[in-house]
């Protein structure tokens, strides 16, 4: 039996001396699995391309030059701004933004619904949200393909009830890609918002109602500011993986145009075989993502200070 005197938590001082060895596995994890690959990518993006894949260990800015400057098909024209890859980035960003908006539109009410159920049944609803995700993403994406195809069940059903007379062309369009991304990442939106709404105290809503705020004003002035961190987290968790996704664009969108993910893939696994350029595109993508995260973090700190 431990006496009351021996039952004290170790203070910060008691870790001194063994803290460093205890943290070593974490540092090793971050170093080997995060920093090293990123560093390797950064180095490769500044190397000289070897014909048909591979690199020569010679410093070169050719990859970044190719990304930003257009010297014509034969490389003999004066350099102008290269729009090819900016277009690919813009397309991916637009798709990811569309998918994020769709997820928010459906995810917020869903999270709200779950969080306002009795505590005993919330677990079941959350469980139902995650069930489809036990199946591999590739299989889910291919299945979606079967559902939305021209002669698929979705069109059959819509035509059966007389809503449409001609089958909808969904497959191989941008709409299909957004639908696929939405379906892939919806729980990443629902779960953080759910966590935020669950902590929301409905006494605030009652207080707002007592002060003659209608439902819309309550939502805008009370609820949204309080659950905002959950919404922001959800948006980031959906937006960033959507940006680099290539399963949905390839399988549902028909792969007619490069997305960032497929552009990079083509440099390594397919015929373009330009490793430094693939690494450079990855670096540029990572820089963009870091800027978004940085701006978000700044905004969050500022709000806390206020």
């Amino acid at each position: 039996m431990a006496g009351p005197g021996s039952n004290h938590a170790p203070g910060p001082g008691s870790w001194r001396g063994i803290l460093v060895p205890l943290l070593l596995p974490t540092w090793a994890m971050i170093g080997i699995f995060l920093l090293l690959p990123v560093l390797l990518m950064a180095v490769y993006s500044f190397l000289t391309k070897e014909f048909r894949g591979g690199v020569e260990w010679e410093f070169s800015l050719a990859a970044y030059d190719q990304f930003f400057l257009n010297r014509g098909l034969f490389g003999d024209e004066p350099p102008t701004l290269e729009w090819t890859y900016i277009t690919v980035f813009a397309r991916s960003i637009a798709q990811a933004a569309g998918a994020t908006a769709l997820c928010l539109l459906i995810g917020f009410p869903t999270a709200w619904f779950i969080a306002t159920r009795p505590a005993s049944s919330r677990g079941i609803w959350l469980f139902l949200i995650t069930v489809p995700y036990w199946v591999n993403l590739l299989i889910r994406t291919v299945s979606l393909r079967f559902l939305i195809r021209e002669n698929g069940p979705l069109n059959d059903a819509l035509m059966g009830v007389g809503l449409i007379s001609e089958p909808l062309q969904i497959i191989n369009t941008n709409m299909a890609v957004q639908l696929g991304l939405f379906y892939s990442y919806l729980p990443f939106m629902v779960l953080p918002i759910y966590a935020a709404v669950e902590r929301y105290s409905f006494a605030y809503s009652e207080a707002a109602a007592d002060l003659y705020a209608n439902r819309w004003v309550t939502l805008r002035e009370i609820v949204l500011p309080i659950v905002r961190p959950g919404i922001v987290a959800g948006c980031i968790l959906v937006f960033i993986p959507s940006l680099g996704a290539f399963l949905a664009p390839n399988l549902l969108g028909g792969a007619k145009n490069f997305m960032i993910g497929s552009l990079i893939e083509e440099q390594f696994k397919k015929s373009l075989g330009n490793w430094p350029f693939g690494a450079a595109v990855s670096m540029i993508l990572m820089t963009l993502v870091l800027i978004v995260l940085f701006v978000q973090a700044r905004a969050a700190t500022r709000q806390e200070v206020r």
Binding site: R149, N250, L251, G254, A255
Partner: peptide, 21 residues
């Protein structure tokens, strides 16, 4: 020509013909 193409796909080349896509 690309304007009249529906999709690019190698490993799906057979399936899209079988399904009628």
């Amino acid at each position: 020509a690309k304007a009249s193409w529906a999709s690019f796909g190698s490993d799906t080349a057979k399936d899209v013909l079988v399904s009628g896509d």
